[in-house]
Design a protein around this nucleic acid. Structure first.
Length: 328
DNA sequence: AACGACTTCAACCGCCTTTGG
DNA sequence: CCCAAAGGCGGTTGAAGTCGT
């Protein structure tokens, strides 16, 4: 038993819009507005279209001052920065880019920007892997030299040729434990370190600071007395409602973390009447970006959380990293 | 020229939120 | 407060275009 459809599917045309349909819809809305009822609109003007389809067509294509394609570097940076801050809230991101629609930005992100950033990340990871391999080689050579020296010394002392039963004299961790993993692979893309992530982006973005990280600092430095207007200095185009949302978001996350509940359950973030719910399942949309900003060691952290294999304090800690928070 | 692989993007779908009675 | 209708949103799809062989 599914939800009732918004319109009579049988009598509704689907697929691409014809120029005639566009002209009908455009001229009607320009003269009369939408009338506050998209569902009734197509019947009024004799269009065999779903009301939702009309709304979408108007908002994404027919509306005046719409820009298509040709995204500038600056727009790329804004999109990336906001995506890192608030995730795939395309309508909010679109509100920061006059003339851009959420659909356009979503498509642009999925088809180009994501790949662009992934490409940058791969290059950096390759460079890191090569550096690590060099360090391992040097270590191996060092160990081999010491082994040879040790064998010679033992042979000389005992006159025994078969060395296989001899225990090495170097500390056990050299032969048993794996090489210690450099923390740099994790922290290099730590979201709490805005500089490191934004360095993946265009240099101009270095002047734009992650609003969530800024809030974190503001909360920490200001005893939780968060003032969006101060926080968003340097983020002039950021709408006050968004900064309010982000500020409240951060505060509630802090509250939840302190209470030991945050990490697995929903959080309602009230924003002057509107409610934004963040859930653990929603965070899966961050998977791609997680791989951009976290090392592979922790990129599957969502999955681990869902299996309950990570203690809650670790979850809270990782979430705080994710939101650029400072843990005490 | 023909074909398949890949990319792009307009449009749809279904879920959640908001609104009004 | 409850419910239904409408609005809004993000994820996904598939047709059309582009590219490489």
């Amino acid at each position: 038993m599914g939800r009732a459809p918004c319109c009579d599917k049988a009598n509704v045309k689907k697929g691409p819009w014809s120029p005639e349909e566009d002209a009908k819809l455009k001229s009607y809305i320009e003269q009369n507005g939408t009338g506050g009822n998209w569902i009734a609109l197509p019947q009024k003007i004799g269009l065999k279209r779903c009301g939702k389809s009309c709304r979408l067509r108007w908002l994404n294509y027919l509306r005046p001052n719409i820009k298509h394609g040709g995204f500038s570097e600056e727009e790329d940076d804004i999109i990336c920065s906001l995506y890192v801050s608030i995730g795939s809230r395309w309508s909010i991101i679109a509100a920061q880019l006059p003339g851009r629609t959420d659909n356009d930005i979503k498509n642009y992100w999925n088809t180009r920007l994501k790949k662009k950033l992934l490409g940058k990340q791969r290059k950096e990871q390759q460079a890191q892997a090569q550096a690590q391999a060099r360090r391992v080689n040097i270590m191996k050579q060092e160990m081999k030299r010491e082994t040879d020296h040790h064998n010679l010394m033992v042979a000389a002392a005992s006159g025994v040729n078969n060395m296989s039963t001899q225990a090495p004299y170097w500390p056990a961790e050299y032969s048993i434990n794996p090489m210690p993993v450099s923390n740099s692979s994790i922290t290099d893309y730590d979201l709490s370190n805005q500089t490191s992530f934004t360095s993946l982006l265009h240099p101009t973005i270095m002047n734009m600071t992650n609003p969530l990280a800024m809030e974190s600092n503001a909360i920490t430095n200001n005893g939780g007395n968060c003032q969006p207007s101060q926080i968003f200095q340097g983020f002039e185009n950021f709408p006050s409602d968004l900064s309010d949302f982000l500020c409240m978001n951060q505060q509630q996350i802090m509250d939840k973390t302190i209470d030991g509940f945050y990490g697995m359950e929903s959080i309602d973030i009230s924003n002057g009447g509107s409610t934004i719910t963040t859930t653990s399942t929603e965070s899966t949309s961050w998977g791609d970006m997680n791989s951009l900003v976290y090392s592979p060691l922790i990129s599957d952290y969502d999955g681990c959380c869902q299996q309950g294999s990570i203690p809650q304090d670790v979850v809270a800690f990782e979430e705080s990293r994710y939101f650029g928070m400072q843990m005490q």
